[in-house]
Amino acid sequence: MRLSLGPLLYPWSREAIEAFYAERVADPVDIVYLGETVCAKRRSLAPDEWLALGRELAAAGKQVVLSTLALVQAGSELSTVRRLCRNGEFLVEANDMGAVRLLAEEGLPFVGGASLNLYNVAALRLLRDRGMVRWLPPLELSRESLGDLLGEARRAGVVLETELFAFGRIPLACSARCFTARHVGRPKDRCAIVCEDYPEGLPMASQEGEPLFTLNGVQTQSGAVQHLLPYGRELADLGVTTLRLSPQPEHLGAVIDRYRAVLDGASDSTDVTAWVSAPVCDGFFRGAPGMAVAPNA
């Protein structure tokens, strides 16, 4: 089982980003996804600087993948995606069908992101035939559906690397509205990137204080941190080839080490509670509401 580091979903400063990735060089992650996927206004690093960072990580032996923006509306956003698809150097993760089309047109291999909504073998085959080499199942898919899908894909000869979002706050939705700017009473057009004040998003709780969601600009994430390491063996048996960990500001190195150790059979302890800032959840995988957590997890 390989480990990947998902794209950074939060708007950190340039210094924080550089420090974060410098630490990852020595971490046992095999694949690193880079780039801005949430909001085109977040520009701590320019596209060329992401490429330069990619070269450093590639030189350290990581497979580098550039991730495209998930919600592409403005012409300027589409131009950015176009340039990224034609970077000429790194594999690209397509996070909307516009990026898929651009990559397929160029005959380039690509990773299909979780927001492409690939729920069945017919959909997988269609994108495999257009250059998809690795894919992420939809974030809500249960173990039962994932097992059906990967089993059927094998029988149909649709063989792809499968990467599952295993650790981190789940990106549940995106909108045209910026919920962070709205929270502080600023119009989106004059947001001054206020989301930079919240390096792990803004927690949103029920009126009883139950953590529910996390506001991250135009993205809404889960309030809890998904953690699927306890199912590591089962995931491998299902045919998952890579587990994705999503960046968080602190303690990610410890989490990565624990994932690696357990997957390698060097440790039995899957507990990460000391290193997360919210409760953990695993409901989607168990076919339950996503926020649920198994009693003994």
Binding site: A70, L71, S115, N117, L139, E140, I170, L172, A173, C174, S175, A176, L212, F213, T220, S222, G283, F284, G287, A288, P289, G290, M291, A292
Partner: peptide
């Protein structure tokens, strides 16, 4: 964005 919202799935399944 329609087709990309898991808020109900997260809360209710």
């Amino acid at each position: 964005v329609e087709g990309r919202c898991l808020l109900s799935a997260y809360t209710t399944g």
